[in-house]
Simulated assay, not measured.
Amino acid sequence: MTTLGAVYLPQFPPERLRSVVRAADEAGLEELWLWEDCFLEGGVASMSAALAWSGRLRVGMGLLPVPLRNVAVAAMEVATLDRLFPGRALVGIGHGVQDWMGQVGARVESPVTLLREYGTALRALLGGERVTTEGRYVSLDGVALDWPPPARPPLFVGAVGPRSLRLAGEIADGTLLTGGTTPDEVRRARALVDEGRARRPEGAGDPHAIVVSVHAATGPDAAARLEAERVRWGYEALDGRGVAGDAERIAEAIAAWTEAGADTVVLQPTPDEPDPEGFVRFVAQQVRPLVP
């Protein structure tokens, strides 16, 4: 079955998150995904608050940029979230936007090398291992968590390019694909991820979830708002990158991404969405029943 979620954009003010989380929780939304975009809202703080304000909602972080945090600190944060809210914290890591990383003096020469070293160490720490490693960017000397999760939580990697997608398949439990990814691009991403999974010592192993964000808008001005998104992101056309309309139209469009290999579709509202609480209710109560 396809998992359906929604995004709480960091362009919405932090103080509105509580009401959106409560609306999502009450409406039965499966997943609410947050972003840590520079220089808007802190990912871990927002995620922990969202989890505390909800009783059953899974909250995803897509994603934490690895240049900004020491891997041991990230492991402590993820382990704490998992122990506080078992099974409900879905954490993704990734390169981060390189221009932003440069702004804060954290840009590295080889982002893929950093992500490999970081993701490998993070998985090991979350698995309760004591880790010693001396890499190009990640160095740990006998580090182990005093409060590891009872079972290692899933780790997602955000990826776009072929090398990063193969790496996601190799070191992660799931891959995050950005908004604007077409169904054909999902197919190509799935194939590259599977190449990476085949490189694991144990082979492909457990299922690997593909999570894709899809631009979406509903309401009387939906088409105009989505057209503004097309211009903002520089897309030549919206076909395959987003959908505007009622629940039936959006559910029909979602099928294209799921047929291409997406396990989870996360509907991404426009930054000028007039009713974020209404949007998550719409996804949970009107679109969800129409998506197998």
Rank of each mutant, 00 (worst) to 15 (best):
S54I: 11
I250K: 09
R288Y: 03
V59W: 12
A223I: 10
F156R: 05
L81S: 05
V283Y: 08
T3K: 12
G102H: 03
L4C: 07
D82V: 03
G278C: 00
P13Q: 00
E109F: 00
R199M: 11
R197K: 07
F279W: 09
L32T: 09
E229S: 14
A198N: 06
A262Q: 12
A27E: 05
P149V: 02
R225P: 10
L40W: 14
C38R: 14
P274R: 06
R152V: 08
I250C: 07
E77M: 10
A256K: 13
V108P: 01
G174V: 08
L4E: 02
T120Q: 06
P269W: 10
T264Q: 14
G203L: 11
R188Q: 15
T113Q: 04
R16P: 02
T3L: 12
S213F: 15
Y8S: 00
R230M: 10
V231Q: 15
R232V: 08
A23W: 07
A50K: 11
V287D: 02
D146L: 09
L115D: 04
A172P: 04
P274E: 05
D82Y: 05
P111E: 01
W233E: 14
L84F: 08
G242T: 06
Q285I: 03
A189I: 08
F279Y: 11
R136S: 09
A253I: 06
A247N: 10
R107M: 03
V73P: 03
A50F: 07
R281N: 04
D263Q: 12
P201H: 06
L115S: 01
E77R: 02
G261C: 13
P201A: 13
S110C: 01
R288K: 13
R58A: 13
Q286W: 05
T264H: 15
V91A: 07
A50H: 11
S164M: 15
E227K: 14
E30Y: 07
M101C: 02
E77F: 04
V280L: 10
A217K: 00
R188C: 08
L68Y: 11
G142A: 03
R225F: 05
P271E: 12
E30V: 06
V66C: 04
S164D: 09
G42T: 09
S110K: 03
L290H: 08
R190C: 09
Q98D: 03
V231H: 14
A50Q: 10
R130I: 01
A45T: 15
D194K: 05
E109I: 01
P162W: 01
R56V: 02
R187Y: 00
V160L: 13
